[in-house]
Design a protein around this nucleic acid. Sequence first.
DNA 1: AGCACGCCGACT
DNA 2: GTCGGCGTGCTC
Length: 718
Amino acid sequence: MPAKNNTSVPGVLQVAVAAPAHSDLPALLSYSSEQPLAAGSLVRVPLGSREVLGIVWDAPDLSSLAAAPPATATLKPIEAALPELGHLSSAWRQLLAFSARYYQRSLGEVALAALPPQLRELDALQLARRLKKPARAFTPAADSLAASPSLTSSPTLTDEQTQALADFFAPSQQPGLLQRPALLMGSTGSGKTEVYLHSVARVLQGSPTAQALVMVPEINLTPQLEARFRARFTQECIVTMHSGMTPAQRLSSWLLAHSAQARIILGTRMSIFASAPHLALIIVDEEHDASYKSQDGARHSARDLAVMRAKLETENGHSCQVLLGSATPSLESWQACEQGRYLRLQMHQRIGQARLPQLRLADMRVLPRGTLFAPPLLAALQEVVARGEQALLFLNRRGYAPVLACDACGWKSECPHCSAYRVFHKSDRSLRCHHCGHTERVPRACPECGNIDIAPLGRGTQKLEEQIALALIDVKQADGNALRILRIDADTTKLKGALQAQLAQVHAGEVDILVGTQMVTKGHDFRRISLVAALDADAALFSSDFRAPERLFALLMQAAGRAGRDASASAAQMWVQTRNPGHPLFAALAQHDYEGYARAQLQERAQAQLPPFSYQALLRAEARSQEVAQAFLQDAFAAAQAMTNTMTGDKANTGITVYPPVPMSLQRVADVERAQMLVEGSARGALQAFLAAWLPQLRSFKRKGLIRFAVDVDPLQI
DNA sequence: AGCACGCCGACT
DNA sequence: GTCGGCGTGCTC
């Protein structure tokens, strides 16, 4: 949708400012300005008693003028223009306008939140000073740029990699038409990163100004990604963008990308909003990963926005392609391939001799209750260690035990502020709530009845570390020394650089058995691990969340991918301890059959009319009491029903289904009660139209005790 | 969201 | 007599 300027008034600017979602303010505020400023320009404007950063926006077209702007004579003038900053491109503005509309937030909130915080804080003078300082990032000297190609030594591509690249860059059948997004399906170890590196090289060589954006799901993965790109593109300016950077670093990276000096941008989901005027390629690695969906503020999906951004950039005159990559794509992306909306690129083989690990199920039903490790798994661990290889034990629960309980009276370590148990951490003998952070020393005796015998129930990674050490106490390394066990989880990696240091220990072979949470299953390239074991996968098998099986399959595939990456390692094994060895998920996993599993899952989803065969939105309310949260949602529910009834008219079906409010599964967090209600639409457009008509009414249902409410469009967790 | 204004309790 | 609690209301 090209921007229309048909209601612009000379001397009047439409400006987006950081106004919250549910304030009375319109999306754009009018200010007077002596000089005309192009849309996308940055300005500082007075707002109430403060002065804030604003973005000059395209004048709205007549149809969207809800309320008449104030009389021109009474408009406040802008405080200052910031011409040194240039302007934000039309494609960028359209992306942010789309994001605001689709995720039902105000334009100003979304657009301003997409800029680096420091840019918002600095006034015109401070900014001018900041811009004089050369940005502290690697920029190649001009002469070396001309002298050597940007692409340095790269390994020979496999046939599959060559084919994937050829297909991705094949000229579109009809010139001028939008290139379809591509989904690169490559099993772990098939060399997806190499395809990314080549794609970026190709795009950068295709145009002297072209920029590429590469996203990874987690901040932890940026260092190794950055290392790979810096080693390959020694002559290019590369910047990173993630929330772990200091405000000054973030501003610096942003300015380099905005000024097009940086040609490669690496980052987490936030980088989808980077200003990059010549963006020609967006890569989304591990596109199935839930981390691409923002869980705070505007709940956007950076993966979905990447597809939209490529489209908008292309429509605005310069072609931009998008490449999604995963061994286990989201069912949404997989379905898009099946329907021909996305181009499928497949790589089945692992590089070199590396083979996918063999799945070994340990049937826990045949073992005495309370067995910690299946004997065959222990035997396999011993063999692995004896060969001087490494093993990874994976348990998705940190701490020592998830709950502490009293045998005598039944007391459990509930958090006083949340509807959850506090987790026992043995190292500092604390009870910690993983939701609100509330921490206390472990009581000596049961606080209810004084019984001394309070016992930890279940196990977390700390206990697992202890148990495996005990179970293998007689096992020595090949050279006769004691086993070295290392635990990696959020608790051991709190300090900056700790994770990198611990991973280095693993790489250096200073560790025999690695114990960890989900954190270690993602992306890290372990060379000598030949055995991976998932110790407690059963919980996810029977979860009420319809996406749980999809996630578990991806998680186990990804975990399995950590094993056997080195050709010299012996046959790699993936162990799963389960009481449900007959579950179809394991059969598919044993065959490494993502496609079969995806088909079966999609069929189930189709029958139940679940996404991607329907579209969902959640309305969430937080309040001082559950009654207030529910009462608010009840009003919203009634309004929604009234709407669908009127919308129905003569038709039998509006395509919208509204479900009654329910408490959230984690009902109380930090003394805030939470409830939600689900809205389902048979089509994206129908759901969007419904939300746009419904949400403006909700403000009038606000009541005392209601803290906030928000919608989550395309929620991942229900 | 900020940040004002505004009307009621314990301190120099 | 003032400092400060956070309840309502406004911001082109």
